[in-house]
Design a protein around this nucleic acid. Sequence first.
DNA 1: ACGAGAACCTGTTTGC
DNA 2: TGCAAACAGGTTCTCG
Length: 275
Amino acid sequence: MPELPEVETVVRGLRPLLEHQRLDRLLLRRADMRFPFPVDLSQRLTGRTINGIERRAKYGLIRFEAEDAPLTLLFHLGMSGRMVCVTSPEEDFDKHDHLVFETARGQVRFNDPRRFGFVEMIDGSDNASRFLGQLGPEPLGEALNPSYLRGAFRNKKAPIKASLLNQRLIAGLGNIYVCEALFEAGIRPTRASGSLKLRELDRLCTEIKAVLTRAIEAGGSSLRDHRQVSGELGYFQHAWRVYGREGAPCRTCERPVQRVVQSNRSTFFCAACQR
DNA sequence: ACGAGAACCTGTTTGC
DNA sequence: TGCAAACAGGTTCTCG
């Protein structure tokens, strides 16, 4: 489930395996993803040292050592993407292992059954990326605050659920954490974005940060689990308050959780607790 | 300009 | 039991 906390967990998990390592081999097994993988990936990156790995919104950024301009490999996990760490390289490939990074420490395999994931080479500054250019502020940064939200949502008729998913307004929220944050803030997902009072925006802002922070902590603890580190990165269990709980009792008032579809995506909420 | 819906693809679950 | 439909964490594009 690659939303922001999962990508953060993936990035943290990749660091000990890839950071300051030379990329000995980059194997491209399948290139026809959501956007085709660049065909010259191996040629451009093999032999280079990885300087660091960062996250921006739901994107992972692998920084490579380069002579002149910065060189970055951006990756996105799509809906079903995973990074699988393999310390015994003779292990058979899965049919959905599309890209394989190999260093002295072993392999990292980009596995993605649905192939909505993709990578992009960024030459120079991050602004050169077609994906990073239009992004709104990071939800965990100081730039996300009630007055920013007031400006971003002013006069907007779109439901608050849709606005929170809009990466140009806030970068990194996905379907699960939007549902959870709206529940925690007591705000009904169908409300017009522009109708939220400053008091509500303040609470929403607080809950967005709290929900994401808790999820990152859960991911961090799962990283310490040996099975996680040597296997799949970025997938951990979480006890959702409303997400995926249609018909089950609200954990606050015990009335059944409702499910509606907004912009073709499921929204879960409690009609009594969220107004 | 804005918002809703479709498209992209595969695997798993649900329902008849 | 078998098969088809529904559904799944994302982003981008088109259309009204």
